[in-house]
Nucleic acid binder design. Structure first.
Length: 475
RNA sequence: GCCCCUAUUGUCUAGUGGUUAGGACGCAGCCCUUUCAAGGCUAAAACCAGGGUUCGAAUCCCUGUAGGGGCACCA
């Protein structure tokens, strides 16, 4: 049975790297018909952000990643919040203390900084408390000192393991520090809690960022000390910026929710992020969650960091928008229409802009001219491609105006029929007729829809008003 | 400083000893066209460097270089 987990610490928002970690863990579990578990790693008392857990729930829901077990969904392996598991960590720390795989350390934090800052750190350095006799330990307790519990790393030997992404990793034990397992406040460190929890929760595959790659041997030593079997490991490369720097909220890199706010569809973001470091082995790029589950293969995950490209996301987002049914797009687009469009046939507008919308926040810019005709000058009537000149435009507008005024079938088809016939009779290219009309209607060089589509949308009265206004600029 | 990891076009990537090094985004051009898009076609664009191994290396090995990560009572 595959059991994977997403174990974020509650920092207040879900960044892109986290989203991908959660997604991969979810995909790996679902692909194998296993369970995906949410665990909250809130062992750093100083970094807890209120509301942050809610942000995690919100992010996962938005992404379409549902968990089988979590804080609010008991699966018999709880509690799923680390701060609620303190007695468990204490019990297991005692076992390590008893077996000699851990020891009490009474050094104060202030004793260490000089050593840590030094560039000449001695490898194989061991804390002096490592060799305290039971009597000495007792004496310090009697003094009222509060210790931490440190892992006793072997002096010799090499620790190694096989990672699904990075292959064989080997590190000499003398490179590893006697890390703190239990802090003096009674909370475990990540280094300890992840091992105890992953084992107790029967996690089969650990999916996490590659920053844990070089400390994983330490965790394996812990598994060995307990006589447990360690899980399989899938370490993930990082997602970085296009300039090679790491993503940072301070530099303005968007979180998952920020992207949604910017007008990207959650499913497009998920699709894009899945492709950052993984590929299906064929040339498909468009994926919905179901397809991802079917196609995902953890052994095809890349080793190298991947840069996040907002341009490619834009493109993929546009693909997702285009794949929506007109009704679905309309519903999603609705909240983005500006106030002034109330009287228009919004469903019709949605139809016109769907294929031209890359991100939802493009919409106001796309449709603004409908509510209010922008200022424009006569130059707009000159267009080489449609063979439009100031003169031809004036003639076209003057001559079509009476035809339009008496037109009764004011629809896209009706308008097109009349104008096309006019072009033929007068020996104009269709484009030469349509250009000035579209220009007067939109007041801009480009618009979602051609002359007749815009005229139908604006209605006869407003269309004629705009055409006359345009004509006045040419006379 | 020590340790771990990585390295194919600007970006995401395919590639596991023999390929005209493939695809995608972006960029440029052309076609289509009732503007713009979309769509179709075309172009430019890459194996970090140097040594090996081999009949033959993007692919295997070594060194270097560059980048990322770790060495917290943070995760």
């Amino acid at each position: 049975m595959f059991r994977t987990r997403f174990a974020p610490s509650p920092t207040g928002y879900m960044h892109i790297g986290n989203l991908r970690t959660a997604l991969y863990a979810y995909l790996i579990a679902k692909k194998a018909g296993g369970k995906f578990i949410l665990r909250i790693e809130d062992t750093d008392q100083s970094r807890n952000v209120p509301e942050a857990v809610a942000a995690i729930y919100r992010g996962l829901a938005l992404a379409g990643i549902s968990y089988d077990e979590g804080p609010d969904k008991d699966g018999g392996f709880g509690p799923y919040v680390q701060s609620e598991r303190l007695p468990i960590y204490k019990t297991y720390a005692q076992k390590l203390l008893a077996s000699g795989h851990a020891y009490y350390c009474f050094c104060s934090k202030e004793d260490k900084p000089a050593l840590e800052a030094s560039n000449e750190r001695v490898e194989g350095y061991r804390d002096p408390c490592r060799n305290l006799t039971p009597q000495e330990v007792e004496a310090r307790f009697a003094e009222g000192l509060v210790p931490v519990v440190r892992q006793r790393i072997p002096l010799e030997g090499i620790s190694s393991f096989d990672d699904h992404v990075y292959g064989h990793i080997a590190i000499e034990n003398k490179q590893l520090d006697d890390q703190v397992l239990l802090k003096s406040d009674g909370f475990p460190t990540y280094n300890f809690a992840n091992v105890v929890d992953d084992h107790l929760m029967e996690i089969s595959h650990v999916i996490r960022g590659q920053e844990y790659l070089s400390s994983t041997p330490k965790y394996n030593l812990l598994y060995e000390a307990f006589g447990w079997q360690h899980p399989e490991y899938i370490h993930l490369p990082h997602i970085i910026r296009e300039d090679g720097a790491k993503m940072s909220k301070r530099k303005g890199d968007p979180s998952f929710e920020d992207l949604v706010r910017m007008g990207f569809l959650p499913q497009a973001i998920v699709n894009y992020v899945a492709l950052l470091g993984w590929n299906p082995g064929d040339e498909r790029e468009f994926f919905l969650m179901e397809d991802l589950i079917a196609a995902f293969d953890m052994d095809r995950i890349n080793k190298a960091n991947a840069a996040f490209s907002i341009d490619k996301l834009r493109w993929l987002n546009a693909e997702h928008i285009r794949s929506l049914s007109p009704e679905a797009f309309h519903q999603i687009a609705l909240p983005f229409y500006p106030e002034g469009l109330k009287g228009f046939d919004l469903a019709k507008i949605s139809q016109l802009i769907q294929i031209r919308t890359e991100i939802l926040t493009d919409i106001p810019r796309l449709v603004g001219f409908l509510a209010e005709l922008p200022e424009y000058s006569a130059e707009l009537f000159e267009n080489q491609k449609s063979k439009s000149t100031l003169e031809s435009s004036r003639v076209v507008l003057e001559k079509t105006l009476p035809l339009l005024e008496k037109l009764e079938n004011w629809s896209n088809e009706g308008l097109f029929e009349v104008l096309k016939a006019f072009a033929q009779e007068q020996g104009f290219k269709v484009g030469t007729v349509m250009w000035p009309i579209r220009a007067t209607l939109s007041g801009q060089e480009t618009s979602p829809g051609g002359a007749t589509e815009l005229a139908a949308l604006l209605g006869k009265e407003e269309s004629l008003r705009r055409i006359k206004l345009g004509l006045s600029k040419l006379q």
